[in-house]
Design a protein around this nucleic acid. Structure first.
Lengths: 114, 114
DNA sequence: CGCATGGTTGGATTATTGTCAAACAATGGG
DNA sequence: CCCATTGTTTGACAATAATCCAACCATGCG
């Protein structure tokens, strides 16, 4: 069947600044967000590869990012794809994500594309 | 004598993004930063007034903000003045502080000036 | 000097958080 | 129907952090 399912995440207007900042105030989560920014939609497996943390730890980070409104997860079959809520974040906090991403990879596309 | 003394704080190039985000990912500290942005230089007493936290708690927050490179403290006599390191933050993470401050007070100068 | 003022420091406490490991769950393929 | 694949959930644990209270400290003033 391959039904597509969106995992629960906050509405745009319910995204809180402090929650977003707290979600991004962690090196691992910041790296995940940077990867998503560079690569677009990714599976949890790809996003969490070579992060230096256990699979379950990465999963917790996805939950944190999703609860904060930073990413959205959609499940297709066995695979869960995650992606940045770039438009929602831009609408709610203009310029915030861009400035953080710009600060994340100092020079250019620092992350080797998958 | 009234000697002026700067309390220790990190050099501009040593300011870390995750540290800044973590420092700002707290409602109390975010409010302090918003006040400093609105009012400029303030004493610790003024910055911490009506925050709903104990005097010593506010002091801990100043320390956190200073250690992260967000504010700078200079002592004149008995009084310690704190202010935003706006230029340093802008130089290191362009647009970051502005976007956060813009998201902090949604409409305009929300905080009643002292 | 003695004292009030303005902040910091040092526990103590309580709550969060980051992490791993192991078990679990859902899904699609043979 | 069983099994491998993909992630999540739960439990445990160590580290961090937010807070208050009390004590402290430096400073300027009388």
């Amino acid at each position: 069947m391959l039904r597509m399912r969106l995992l629960p995440h906050p509405a745009t207007e319910d995204i809180e600044l402090t929650e977003v900042l707290r979600a991004l105030a962690d090196p691992v989560r910041l790296e995940i967000v940077a990867r998503l920014s560079a690569c677009g939609e990714m599976t949890c497996g790809n996003a969490g590869d070579h992060l230096g943390v256990h699979k379950s730890t990465a999963s917790h980070h996805y939950r944190t990012l999703r609860a904060a409104g930073v990413i959205v997860s959609k499940q297709e079959g066995r695979i869960i794809y995650i992606s940045l809520r770039r438009d929602d974040l831009d609408a709610r906090f203009p310029g915030l994500l861009d400035s953080i991403l710009a600060a994340t990879h100092p020079t250019a596309g620092a992350l080797a594309p998958l």
